[in-house]
């Protein structure tokens, strides 16, 4: 009897593990629903249409910034300059609006973000610098440039265009307008990752760079395109985020950097490359946002909240890695 249960238990665990490995999104959905359930239990009636809209609204910039992390992590890299790129885009755009008008300002704002991406790509692809160092360095340089730039435009003031504010904060039929930008982008990224050659190349480079090089892939082209794309997405995120916050500052998006890495990791993307996808990252961003609300509601001191936040990230990742490892 005891022997039988002992045999059965690892078997069920193994089955759960295999099921999770085949459908990596399901435990994340369960976790998300669980968190929402706890929230509803703590403060009955809080989960309504308005709350859901707000949660999505704040999760979207995080999920977009986490897209940069997800894509670069698939190749075994990381983009720590994404938040700075987003901040620069937002700040340059907002300060250029009074001078050159909205459409041109948006274009000018996106330029530095793409440029940063290209520099990152050049360093990673051609000079073979570790992505962590490269993106950290460009982020540092860009922050300095932004501070110098600020002193030249301090007189002209800044304006957040109505269109971006509408996109960032407005809602139509209860749903935030930012979904208009986010849904096509997410679909495009997921489609690109799963179905296009570029997406497959990312997984291939992340799994085994030498093997893919020998199979005829030119890594430098892929890396250059990847980091430029990451910069562009970060720039767009910045524009959306300034529409949400409505006050451009020199550290606007920076607090989102580490959560964006966390969102990608919780979503099941391996930091060593080759495994993961954007679907999980979106769920990761939602989980982090709900978790943030939950911790705010707990009325604990700020310090305790941060401790809990860190511990939960760690626990979730541990469980996730254990579960997906078991089926191997």
């Amino acid at each position: 009897m005891t022997a039988e249960t002992q045999v059965r238990e690892p078997l069920t665990l193994k089955r759960v593990g295999r099921f999770v490995a085949d459908n990596p999104l399901i435990p994340l959905v369960v976790l998300l629903l669980l968190l929402v359930g706890v929230l509803e239990f703590m403060r009955p009636g809080i989960v309504n249409e308005r709350w859901i809209g707000n949660t999505i609204k704040f999760a979207i910039p995080l999920a977009m910034l986490a897209a940069c992390q997800t894509m670069t992590m698939l190749t075994g890299g990381i983009d720590l300059s994404a938040a700075v790129a987003a901040t620069i885009s937002a700040f340059v755009m907002a300060t250029q609006v009074p001078i050159v008008g909205v459409p041109l300002a948006i274009c000018i704002g996106l330029l530095p973000a793409i440029l940063m991406g290209l520099v990152n790509g050049f360093g990673v692809a051609v000079c073979r610098v570790h992505p962590l160092i490269m993106t950290l360095g460009t982020g540092l340089i860009a922050t300095g440039c932004l501070q110098v730039y600020q002193r030249f435009v301090i007189a002209s003031g800044s304006v957040v265009p109505d269109g971006l504010a509408w996109l960032g904060t407005g809602r139509t039929w209860g749903l935030p307008n930012s979904l208009l930008l986010f849904v096509p982008m997410a679909v495009l990224i997921i489609w690109a990752q799963r179905r296009t050659g570029f997406g497959r190349l990312l997984y291939a480079l992340g799994s085994n760079e030498t093997a893919s090089r020998i199979s005829g892939v030119r890594p430098w082209q892929v890396f250059l395109a990847l980091y430029a794309l990451s910069g562009l997405i970060a720039g767009v995120t910045g524009l959306l985020y300034v529409g949400l916050i409505k006050a451009p500052s020199l550290s606007l998006v920076n607090p989102l950097l580490l959560p964006s890495v966390a969102a990608a990791v919780i979503g099941g993307t391996s930091i060593f490359g080759g495994r993961g996808g954007y679907g999980g990252t979106i769920l990761g961003a939602l989980i982090l946002t709900v978790l943030g609300t939950l911790l705010t509601l707990l009325q604990m001191p700020e310090g305790a909240r941060r401790i809990l936040f860190g511990l939960i990230i760690l626990t979730v990742t541990t469980i996730y890695i254990r579960l997906t490892e078991q089926s191997r």
Partner: peptide, 17 residues
């Protein structure tokens, strides 16, 4: 067995707290 970057990222929040 979580990658060191992730663990220390999470611990960054913990120690800050």
């Amino acid at each position: 067995r979580v990658p060191d970057i992730v663990v220390t990222l999470a611990m960054l929040y913990v120690w800050e707290g």
